Simulated scan of single mutants.
Amino acid sequence: MNSTWLAGFRSAIISPYEQFQLTEPRGFEDRTVRQVLHMAGGGQRLRIRLSNRYGRDALAIGAARIALRKTGATPIAETDTVVRFGGADHVSIPAGGELISDTVDLAVAAGEDLLLSMYLPGPTGLATFSHQAMEISYVAVGDRTADLELPGAEEVSSRFYVTGVDVLGAVGTPVVVAFGDSWFDGAGTTVGANRRSVDALNSLLSRGWVVNQGISGNQLLTDEVGEHALGRFDRDVLAVPGVTHVVINLGINDLGLGETATADDLIAGYTELAARAHAAGLPIYANTIGPFAGVIYPEVNAAPALPVRNEVNHWLRGTTVFDAVFDVATAVADPERPDHIRPDLDSGDGLHLNDTGAQIMARTMRLPLSGV
Rank of each mutant, 00 (worst) to 15 (best):
M1H: 14
N2Y: 09
W5H: 01
W5R: 02
I13N: 01
Y17M: 12
F20M: 13
L22S: 11
E24F: 10
R45P: 05
R45Q: 15
I48K: 06
R65D: 02
A67T: 11
A67M: 07
A73L: 01
T74P: 00
R84H: 06
P94I: 05
G96I: 14
A110T: 10
L120Q: 08
P121I: 05
T128P: 01
F129V: 09
S130W: 07
M134C: 13
S137R: 00
V141W: 02
V141M: 01
P151V: 12
V162W: 05
G164C: 01
A170K: 05
T173D: 14
A178E: 13
A178R: 06
T190R: 02
G192D: 08
R196N: 08
S197Y: 11
N202V: 06
N202K: 07
L204T: 05
L205K: 07
S206Y: 02
S206R: 14
W209K: 07
W209C: 02
V211W: 00
Q213K: 05
S216I: 12
D234K: 10
V247M: 05
V247H: 12
L250M: 06
I252Q: 01
G256M: 00
T262M: 02
D264M: 08
Y270K: 02
L273C: 07
A280K: 13
I284Y: 04
I289L: 07
F292H: 08
G294N: 14
I296F: 00
A303Y: 04
E311N: 08
V312A: 02
H314W: 08
T319S: 11
V321I: 12
A329V: 03
A329R: 00
D334F: 09
H340Q: 11
R342I: 03
P343Q: 07
D346M: 02
G350I: 13
N354V: 04
D355V: 03
M361F: 12
R363Y: 02
R363H: 10
R366E: 14
